[in-house]
């Protein structure tokens, strides 16, 4: 049945989620939580992709190319998280802290 849902709804949700993730990246001081917010932003982008894929109807089917892309994105995100966390662990070992404001040796 027809719904009152439009593309705008989904895009709005996705955008808001992205904004929340961005806020988290900027505000939090714990490295791991920052990383999680980063993943949140990625997921929001995923939603946008699926929404557009759904609304591009080809022969009565959604454009599955978007889904394929999503497949890859999720894979890459997993790999990225693995490596990123490994880096954070290595960082924690040398600095003994996960407070991002204390990691500032690149300061002029």
């Amino acid at each position: 049945m027809e719904t009152a849902l439009t593309l705008n709804h989904f895009l709005l949700v996705s955008g808001l989620l992205f904004a929340i993730g961005l806020a988290g990246v900027l505000v939090r001081r714990n490295l791991i939580v920052i990383f999680m917010c980063l993943e949140l932003m990625l997921a929001a982008a995923n939603l946008t992709l699926v929404a557009f894929s759904r609304f591009n109807v080809v022969d009565g089917e959604p454009a599955y190319d978007g889904h394929v892309l999503l497949f890859f994105i999720i894979t890459v995100a997993a790999a990225e998280v693995a490596v990123g966390l490994a880096i954070i662990v290595a960082l924690f070992r040398s600095r003994e802290t996960t407070d991002v404001t204390k990691i500032n040796s690149m300061k002029h």
Partner: peptide
Amino acid sequence: LAALFIQLNAFLVGILQILVY
């Protein structure tokens, strides 16, 4: 998010979201 995916007829991706993410 996964539920939203499924609402958009993206079943595989939705399940993948839960499984992997």
